[in-house]
Amino acid sequence: MLKIKDLFVSVEEKEILKGINLEVNTGEVHAIMGPNGSGKSTLANVIAGRDGYDITKGEIIYEGHNLLEMDPEERAREGVFLAFQYPVEIPGVSNAVFLKTALNEIRKHRGEEELDAVQFLKYMKEKMKLVGIPDSLINRPVNQGFSGGEKKRNEIFQLQVLQPRLAVLDETDSGLDIDALKIVSNGVNSFRDKNNAVIVVTHYQRLLNYIIPDFVHVLVDGRIVKSGGKGLALELEEKGYDWVTNNEAVTA
């Protein structure tokens, strides 16, 4: 589904990603861990299509398309979804109206009927229940004045509504209390199926108790220095990043 080949990315002349290789297939969950500033969000943003990054080398192939040539909205319509590390507040745009517009754009692209207000409301209500989003958040402007946890929950709510094929979750667990963590994880798990894939970026092994990954990758200074199964996260938690950086030569 997604193939990242030898990807080099710079921001303002500063090299951040230094040769990323990653392959994600349908049905898989990949976790990416790594120290602050190692380039995890950069990778997520490049997948989603944010401006301001120089791709100096490499490519990303998504479902046979050259992803880097597509606009962010095209990527979204083709099923790429990014849950933001820092969801953006949009004053004046109601959450519900925003989501209806987004969903209908995506449905149009897929050749499906657009949902009218009544149909959308019904559909949305189901999803709201699933991730425990109260009515009060739905009619407020997108993310405006939401607490940190509410913002993250809202990202997963959008994931559920839009039903993408590739979901990239950038630290969706940070700022969540224990209960919210469970709810959000359930939201992700109920989304998972054999036709889609998830990349979770996280600092905490804890999340991976709920969202069990098939692969764990360790990103350090713009490179994936180690990959393994779900056990790798536990090992990291125990031994810290020093352990992988010192063993960098062992993996590739």
Binding site: R50, I90, A102
Partner: peptide, 9 residues
Amino acid sequence: FYLRTRGIG
């Protein structure tokens, strides 16, 4: 960018 990542042109 946020709106565009949700499929809005």
